[in-house]
């Protein structure tokens, strides 16, 4: 847990002191996406290798999916209602910085 906060903190400090150029930012995007891919593959592998989890998926999986679905729906609803109330027009508007996303996809 500590290492996680240290990596994040180091990155924030470095980025704050020396903001990245556009090309460096693109390179960093590839690195973080590679990290995310690896993380998801390993998460999948941990589920795949665990026979007990796989066997019980049907039994408790249904309950788990219902609980998770309701918790997720409740969260989205609560946040959405709050921001619609605070800012009736603006909650979904695009900003200039979103162009970065278009650039990367």
């Amino acid at each position: 847990m500590g290492v996680i906060f240290i990596s994040l903190g180091l990155g924030v400090a470095l980025g704050f002191l020396r903001p990245l150029s556009v090309s460096q930012s693109k390179m960093m995007f590839r690195v973080t996406m590679a990290g995310l891919f690896l993380l998801l593959v390993v998460m999948g592998a941990q589920l795949g290798v665990n026979q007990e989890v796989l066997n019980n998926l049907g039994k408790i999986g249904f309950k788990a999916v219902v609980l998770a679905g309701f918790a997720v729906a409740g969260s989205i609803l609560a946040v959405h209602i709050l921001f619609r109330w605070l800012d009736p027009k603006g909650s979904g508007k695009k900003t200039a910085s979103e162009n970065r996303e278009n650039l990367c996809q």
């Binding site: 996680i4 180091l10 990155g11 400090a13």
Partner: peptide
């Protein structure tokens, strides 16, 4: 860690 370091740089800048 690698990913969060990259995200950190992005956020910090």
């Amino acid at each position: 860690c690698i990913m969060l370091f990259g995200v950190g740089i992005d956020i910090g800048s």
